[in-house]
Design a protein around this nucleic acid. Sequence first.
DNA 1: TTGTATGCGTTATCAA
DNA 2: TTGATAACGCATACAA
Lengths: 332, 332
Amino acid sequence: VALKAGVSQATASRALAGDPRISDPTRATVIEAAEALAFVPNQTARNLRKQSTQTLGLLLSDLADPDHAQVGAGFEQAAADAGFSVLVVAARKQVEDEERAVRALQERGTDGICVASSSLDPVQIRSSVAPTPLVVVQPDHPSLVTDGNPLPPGIIRSDDVAGVEQIVRHLLSCGYREMAYLGVGPSFTNEVRGSTAGRVMLTESGATMRRFEVDDEAWRVPTQVAQALGEDLPEAVICYDDKLAISLLDGLRSRGIRVPDELAVVGYDGIPFAAFSNPRLTTVRVPSAEMGALAADLLIASIESHVLPEAITVPVELVVRESSGARGECVP
Amino acid sequence: VALKAGVSQATASRALAGDPRISDPTRATVIEAAEALAFVPNQTARNLRKQSTQTLGLLLSDLADPDHAQVGAGFEQAAADAGFSVLVVAARKQVEDEERAVRALQERGTDGICVASSSLDPVQIRSSVAPTPLVVVQPDHPSLVTDGNPLPPGIIRSDDVAGVEQIVRHLLSCGYREMAYLGVGPSFTNEVRGSTAGRVMLTESGATMRRFEVDDEAWRVPTQVAQALGEDLPEAVICYDDKLAISLLDGLRSRGIRVPDELAVVGYDGIPFAAFSNPRLTTVRVPSAEMGALAADLLIASIESHVLPEAITVPVELVVRESSGARGECVP
DNA sequence: TTGTATGCGTTATCAA
DNA sequence: TTGATAACGCATACAA
């Protein structure tokens, strides 16, 4: 480009970068030359020079999951608005994949990394990413539930404990007593949701809480999900997430079990389709897209300020719909 | 690292790269030093040197859309398996965003770019990405429907024409005659699906085909979607995609219209939730995840061979479920 | 088997 | 206002 415009490399660079101390005619010449050559500036070289890539890394477990996709969409959007690109990698719950992924992101010099729903401990993650890049994590985690509030910085969590508590209170107020929690495999989030449900139940005399667990991919086979509850049905079941709940709804229909008359079902996450199921699904709305966007914003702010953002607990909201509430007043 | 190990830069580089002509003791020393320093190789510099980034760019319209997410998941998976990272950018149907996105991907030196569901013409895209990187596009497009087969290379499309034809034949065989197509905004894919439906209908005497269009985001408000069909309902409605169909199902339920007895509904894409709706949705299954994976594989192969992959038309499959087929035999 | 030197495309420092 | 030049961190051609 410099040759074509008949100026020096430095001048060309400055002209294209909009350096104010370049004369208008020169700038025009350079720009013209650049266009004639369909010049595309090489970010790679620029990165090498500036030690920054204007790129964020996003690690999540599954791009195809409606809730995680929501987080990803919010994150990408916010990042793009701030002029950052995002490198995504899905680590389908494999710790091993996760480590490789983090490493790949580091090698590529991402300016910051966001880990959404990891199968590792937040502090472990932090230390594994430790050297230069920064982190922000996502959902709830047992180590974060400590009621004493000194949450480590750089963490955005949704208040799953409060969410599950709201569900349970709602169900109790509806008159349900025999409840169940249907969880998905071994995951921290599952642990928090399941154990919270159980704990809250303890305080209510006469109420019982059974716990069932299905496999990661079980939601794909609704009949299997419905079978997991066994023959002796509870009165209400709280599902790990909406995806599972919607699957369960279908499985129950196959079994000829009416919801909510014979069994109430509630989900978690508040994915869009939860509002369109039949019956419409009672759930807890988690502002996933907003959390993704927030993560990107904080990450970027933190990159510029070199200081980790405060931990944030995002509030969640119970959304009562048709799949629960057959009996009684059901005041949330 | 070289200093720490007491060897030259080159030796260190070679040792870490697994160069065979390095002695075992030396290699051990270097590796030890690297670990002691928690050395992370700088991909950026390596990229600059090798003029390749082991990174693919993925451009899609919306990460949160269940079908596009599927494509993205397949793409990421295949890319990761081949050791590539993927830079995603969502261009919510804005041509402007799309151009910025492509440019951003180019600047970052992606080795290849995959454009999934663009609002531009495939050949336009190709030329805009033209210089070095390569492209592969996704769904169907009017310019590709030409029955003469000289499809431009590097294109993966699903056979939407065949898919819609199957739907129409299915509906006809069920005895439906007054049909409608419910489309979404101005998009090429929508055009192909809608016009194909109309064209096929022409060949059948007695059958009619109306066309309705709703807005991009209309699916979020089911009642609005259901209203779009007006008071004088057709007997069957073909929706642009499953997302819209599921929304419509909900809107019709609000209006007290029974599916399929009063109105048959069919979707398109075959997203997982389509199988769990109530009534379960008749749809055309498009192997989106596989297409995404295929795109990544072909892209990578093409990067290495420097030759564009053949165009591929992926077959689709009608899946008849409860939301259609109230009357008659319904042989697909 | 290892060391020396050069270049990848930018930006930034220092002179002119 | 512009030009020459060094450096970013790595890979490699060539010399040893």
